[in-house]
Amino acid sequence: MVNELMKELGLDETPDNEALISSLVADAQLITLDSISSTATQDDYKNNNLFNRAVKTLATQLFYDRTLSEGTSLGYQMIVTHLQMGVLSSADTNATSNENI
């Protein structure tokens, strides 16, 4: 994901850029994961394209504005909401399945 984001940002592949983007991606992963669910793990989302786009979106925002002085973008918020709904839908499905037992 780091190399993809560096290409999207048009950054040269230098050790400094790689270290910075790696750090921002790691932070964005943790923030996004925590925003979706307190029980979710990175393994739950490692192959989820929507999660990966949310991480890249937030990491990009952090690249340009480390303090997120304007908050997170509406696009990021929309993606997180979709991911949250997926978690809630799964929880509802599991609860319904357990009720039928």
Rank of each mutant, 00 (worst) to 15 (best):
D34R: 15
R66H: 07
N94K: 03
Q61D: 14
E13R: 07
N47A: 14
E8N: 02
D44F: 04
L74C: 11
D65V: 01
D92R: 03
K46N: 08
V25N: 11
F51I: 00
D12I: 04
Y76S: 06
R53A: 15
Q29G: 14
S89N: 05
F51D: 05
M85H: 11
T96E: 07
D12Q: 06
S35T: 04
Q77T: 15
L30P: 01
I31Y: 10
S97M: 04
Y45L: 10
R66D: 04
Y76G: 04
F51E: 03
S90K: 08
L68K: 05
T39R: 08
F63H: 15
L5D: 05
T93K: 09
N49W: 13
K46R: 07
D34P: 07
S69K: 14
P15N: 08
A40I: 00
F63Q: 06
Q77K: 14
G75C: 02
L11K: 02
D92V: 09
I101D: 09
L50S: 12
D92C: 03
G71L: 01
N100V: 06
N47M: 14
N17W: 15
N100C: 04
D43C: 06
I21T: 09
I21Y: 10
N3E: 15
T39F: 07
S22K: 07
N3I: 06
I36E: 00
M6W: 04
T41C: 08
L68Q: 06
T60H: 12
S38F: 11
R53H: 10
L24E: 09
A91K: 04
L9R: 01
A19G: 09
S22H: 11
H82E: 12
